[in-house]
Amino acid sequence: MVDFNDIALFVEVVRCGSFSEVGRRLGMPPNTVSRRMQGLEEQLGARLLQRTTRKLTLTDAGREFHDRCAASIDGLRQASQDLNASSKVPSGLVRVAAPADFLDFYTPQMVSVFLDRYPAVRFEFLLSDAMADLIADRIDVAFRGGASGGTGYIAHQMPIASMGLFASPAYLGRYGSPGSLKDLLDHRCLTMPSSSGRAVWRLQGEDGADEQVEVAGAFAATTTRALHLAAVAGLGIALLPRAIANAEVAAGKLESVLPRYRRRDEMMCVVYPSHRQVTPAVSAFVASVIEQFGQGSTWGPALTGSAAR
């Protein structure tokens, strides 16, 4: 009969990605973990893991077995933890996949406040605009643009705050302030890189109608942070999150340009793998993000670059 402890160990191996990491977490020699996995494969009559000197990968049979067992193992583990009152206190490691600019919006100061409240929690932020594989990268929660987490994920939506146009006093003093969207054609605009060297800004006017203008400039960058710094430096007009830019406006480093226009609100998703139980630490962290940004959040367009698959 298959030992259910070995099945639970197999699920942990998949999440950790190596025998040594499982051994470190569970206080077990890596060769013991390997031996138990070999024994499980023999009992099942199927190869679950492909072993190389660099990493472990799932076979097709292993992936199917993991997908069918992981939720049950998590459910049993969660049921036992719920009997212990201390398990309701947020604790442990939370791995977060987010865009490269994430900590410009959910700032280290906010992280500090969270950790003061929940000192037993630890964070690992994987900050990249590239796609993140929640299973392979052992991600607990991911932030991405759009309105859906995709198949196999649970996604909670929240609005991304509106954005506006901003430039430095030095730039406006040199080139003047545009009076209409069409005037932006004659200005240096700060955009994300594109093959054409131009970008289309779709904005909403006071009457709620959408308008668009094609813009270009001498500076383009892949992150909102870089565009923000470029605007402060006087390189051009940038489309920025209002809550971020407002601080620079108050300091006299930026001025609002065509303030009657803003980018239509979009949606952001907070995403979890559907097979995994959400821990108290993850729940508390997501609640903190929603509390900070659920109304009039400061999220910028970089969120559209981060996805989970």
Rank of each mutant, 00 (worst) to 15 (best):
L239P: 00
P241T: 05
V232N: 04
A243I: 05
L235D: 08
E214S: 12
A231R: 10
G234I: 00
A230M: 07
G234F: 08
D210M: 15
L227F: 06
G208H: 09
E211V: 02
Q212T: 12
L240N: 06
A230Y: 04
L235E: 12
A238K: 13
E214I: 13
A209S: 14
L229W: 05
V213N: 01
A221D: 13
T223F: 03
Q212E: 14
A245V: 02
G205F: 14
A216L: 02
R242W: 08
L229T: 06
E214L: 08
G236K: 01
P241I: 03
R225N: 09
A230Q: 03
E206Q: 15
H228G: 03
A218H: 11
A209L: 10
V215Q: 02
A209V: 10
D207W: 12
A231N: 09
G236H: 10
L227Q: 11
I237S: 04
E206F: 08
A220K: 07
E211W: 11
T224N: 12
F219D: 05
V213Q: 01
I244V: 15
V232T: 05
A221S: 13
P241F: 13
G208N: 03
A209D: 15
A218D: 15
V213D: 04
V213S: 04
D207N: 15
A209F: 06
E206K: 15
G208W: 08
E214V: 14
L240W: 12
D210P: 03
L235V: 01
D207G: 07
G236V: 00
A245N: 07
A220E: 06
T222D: 14
G234K: 08
R225G: 12
A243R: 15
P241E: 02
R242S: 11
A245D: 00
A221T: 02
V215R: 01
T222V: 08
G236P: 03
A230L: 07
V213C: 08
A216K: 12
A233Y: 01
L240P: 04
A243N: 11
E206P: 10
V213A: 04
A233L: 05
A216E: 07
G236W: 13
L227C: 02
A220P: 00
T224I: 02
A245Y: 13
V215L: 03
E214W: 00
E214F: 00
R225H: 14
A231E: 09
Q212G: 11
A231D: 03
L235H: 14
T222H: 09
V215H: 04
L235C: 09
G234R: 09
V213H: 02
F219I: 10
G205C: 10
L239S: 09
R225Q: 12
A209N: 13
L227R: 15
A245M: 12
L239M: 12
A209I: 05
A238W: 06
T224Q: 13
A230D: 01
A216P: 01
I244D: 08
P241Q: 11
I244A: 13
L235T: 00
L235N: 06
A238P: 08
I237D: 04
V215N: 01
G217F: 05
Q212F: 06
L240Q: 07
L229Q: 08
A226H: 10
G205V: 13
T224D: 15
A238C: 10
V232W: 03
G208C: 08
L240G: 03
E211P: 00
E211H: 14
V232Q: 07
G208P: 10
G217V: 06
